[in-house]
């Protein structure tokens, strides 16, 4: 048996082996080439072009000039950019834990098997995800209205004056509410599907050992969820940094609460569409992209260290 397998694995002459290796690797490239071509066209080329753009400056008077890293030094000193950055960072630190915490609770509740009408519960929590973000924001925007919206109706019905969700102080929390409403079901589903693959014999064993529900959650379910939680966290980090739809739509309802530099993405949009500052807009987009990558990578490293 040993000799047979050794015989089977005997290497051919070095030249033939090298040739086979090259051929094999070429075959691989042929398979991925359609993807690589598209990837280069729609991903690498725009990034490369943005970097190219960010090294120039076009003015209304004086035309286009090469300015090297000037746009970048400007971006690092731009208080408007950093205020937008700070806002999404705050959003990330507050909204993401709340949303994922809720999603975790819901997933555990459904998985516990003690819920009556679990399927209905699951679909109704998930449903907001099926509503397009633009529609969801418009809908919430109407409800937030203190004059003609739900808040206005509540004020009138109970004779109270609720705080205005579209005021500058509360607008970020209001956006957090919309995003949570929309994404909690989606995250719940990621976590729930991770729970479904846990081997039921583990629960049986735990029950035999006399473990209660909380002990089972702590010792079996949460460790099983670690990978899924990390994925959900990374998605949420990226989503927070790219916050755009909600502020851009609510700006029509609350023009003074949402500035043109409310989030970095919205700032980049305003710069190019209102200000014709395409070069600086590209710079902001690149800085923000790099920052997102760093934060997402840091989260991933941390998640993996825990796992290991």
């Amino acid at each position: 048996m040993a000799s047979l397998s050794a015989d089977h694995a005997r290497p051919g002459p070095p030249a033939a082996r090298a040739r086979r290796k090259t051929r094999r690797s070429l075959v691989g490239w042929k398979f991925v080439s359609p993807f690589m071509a598209l990837f280069a066209l729609v991903f690498l080329a725009p990034i490369g072009y943005s970097i190219y753009l960010s090294l120039y400056k076009t003015r209304l008077i004086g035309g286009t000039q090469f300015v090297g890293a000037q746009n970048y030094t400007e971006a690092f000193q731009d208080s408007q950019f950093w205020s937008g950055f700070g806002r999404v960072a705050l959003f990330l630190m507050v909204q993401v834990p709340i949303m994922l915490g809720l999603a975790l609770l819901l997933a555990l509740a459904i998985d516990s098997g003690r819920l009556y009408g679990a399927a209905f519960f699951r679909i109704s929590v998930f449903l907001p995800y099926a509503v397009p973000a633009v529609v969801a924001t418009l809908m919430w925007g109407f409800m937030y209205g203190t004059r003609f919206g739900l808040i206005g109706n509540l004020d009138k019905a109970f004779g109270v004056t609720l705080p205005d969700p579209l005021s500058p102080d509360l607008i970020l929390a209001s956006i957090g509410n919309i995003v949570t409403w929309q994404w909690v079901g989606y995250n719940m589903l990621i976590l729930y599907s991770a729970l479904r693959v846990v081997n039921p014999s583990l629960y049986e064993a735990a029950a035999i050992e006399g473990a209660g529900q909380f002990r089972i959650i702590w010792a079996i379910k949460l460790p099983a969820l670690r990978g899924a939680l990390m994925i959900a966290t990374i998605f949420s980090v990226i989503g927070s940094f790219q916050l755009f739809n909600e502020p851009s739509i609510l700006k029509h309802l609350a023009p003074n609460a949402i500035t043109t530099y409310f989030t970095p993405n919205y700032y980049a949009y305003s710069l190019s569409f209102d200000g014709q500052q395409f070069n600086y807009s590209a710079t902001v987009a690149i800085v923000m992209g790099v920052a997102t990558m760093i934060v997402a990578y840091a989260v991933q490293l941390r998640g993996m260290r825990k796992a290991g």
């Binding site: 753009l53 035309g63 929309q182 998605f235 739809n245 993405n265 190019s272």
Partner: peptide, 26 residues
């Protein structure tokens, strides 16, 4: 996570594409 957020990205990307087209011939 991200149909809507991707749309945000797409918008951003199309903004960028417009920017590209615009400055290409600057």
């Amino acid at each position: 996570m991200t149909i809507s957020r991707r749309r945000g990205v797409l918008l951003g990307a199309s903004a960028l594409a417009v920017a590209l087209a615009a400055t290409a011939c600057g």
